[in-house]
């Protein structure tokens, strides 16, 4: 086990009455990274993080979070982590500031609620009842509540699901700030862009299993889906082309000006194509390189789309 790992999970299992939600997964989260669990609804993301937060008992396997066993040392663990649940609520008639003060009182460590409110842009709303807040404001309050004990480890379960794109971007900025503050963040999401943009490492989860794990770039690199190179020349290509290295399939469009090449090592292939075009004295008009996205990786690994 890595010494600077904040979370380590081995052979973790979770079974409800009939459903086997988590089927023996294994991963580590290192200090200071944003770790993403990416997967469709029902993949077992919430079950996994809620076991790690000390909220649900596990059916099998081992888990260690900040050096605590989340099942046997719940209280100590809960005192040290920050959590933003997927589904939760506050009393309708509690005021924003009151809720922060209340939750601070539960922890041994706390930060000034004033600063938190300002940072989450809730200062003007501090006297508002919870029931009057918009969806985005409620989510920012949920993030503020997750930070009242100044935790070094944060769990955010689908923090942007169901929010408008603009509010989603606001939340993304806040999560990036948390990373800059060197907090470790475990984030679950079913939005590919979110995982790509925010996460240092991503575990792709499907039907209770982790099907791939790595940095977004690694996952894309290891994908069997090839990159696509598209080159448009000023004049039609009439001469025949050689077999470029690593090129798997090459085709020319009807006009004869656009060449499409699939490659397993696009950087090298592209370089060779450019050299050839130069030798042939062809004028270049446009170049496109399309790498496989995490979405492609996901489809390739699971045979399904993340969102219908």
């Amino acid at each position: 086990m890595n010494t600077d790992s904040v979370i380590s999970v081995q052979a973790l299992q979770k079974r409800y009455d009939k459903v086997e939600a988590v089927k023996g997964i294994e991963f580590e989260v290192r200090a200071g990274e944003v770790f993403g669990l990416l997967g469709p609804n029902g993949a077992g993301k919430t079950s996994t993080v809620e076991i790690l937060e000390g909220l649900r008992p596990r059916t099998g396997g081992e888990a260690m979070v900040l050096g605590f066993d989340p099942e046997r040392q719940k209280q100590q663990l809960k005192d040290r982590i920050g959590v933003c649940l997927q589904a939760t609520n506050l009393p309708a008639k509690i005021r924003v500031q009151e809720s922060l003060d209340l939750f601070s009182s539960f922890y041994t460590r706390h930060v000034s609620s004033e600063k938190l409110l300002q940072r989450m842009q809730l200062w003007e709303k501090r006297a508002a009842y919870y029931e009057t807040l918009s969806g985005g404001q409620k989510q920012r309050l949920a993030l503020a509540l997750a930070l009242v004990n100044d935790p070094q480890l944060l769990f955010l379960d689908e923090p942007t699901t169901g929010l408008d794109p603009q509010i989603r971007l606001e939340i993304h900025k806040l999560i990036e700030e948390m990373r800059e503050e060197k907090r470790t963040v475990v984030l679950t999401t079913h939005y590919i862009e979110e995982a790509e943009r925010l996460c240092d490492r991503v575990a792709i989860m499907d039907e209770g299993k982790i099907v791939a794990i790595g940095t977004p770039a690694e996952l894309q690199k290891n994908s069997r889906t090839q990159s696509q190179i598209q080159i448009t020349c000023a004049a039609p290509i009439t001469q025949s082309w050689p077999q470029w290295p690593d090129a798997i399939e090459t085709s020319l469009d009807k006009e004869g000006r656009t060449l499409t090449v699939f490659s397993s090592r696009p950087a090298r292939t592209l370089f060779e194509i450019m050299r050839w075009l130069d030798q042939q004295n062809m004028q270049l008009e446009d170049v496109h390189l399309k790498r496989p996205t995490l979405e492609d990786v996901f489809v390739e690994l699971t045979g399904k789309k993340l969102r219908e």
């Binding site: 937060e53 909220l55 809960k78 649940l85 609520n89 939750f103 539960f106």
Partner: peptide, 17 residues
């Protein structure tokens, strides 16, 4: 009511009993 609305769930995350 508090259980149904998910208010207690939020408390469960904290160290209180």
């Amino acid at each position: 009511q508090e259980r149904e609305l998910g208010v207690l769930r939020r408390y469960k995350v904290t160290p209180i009993t």
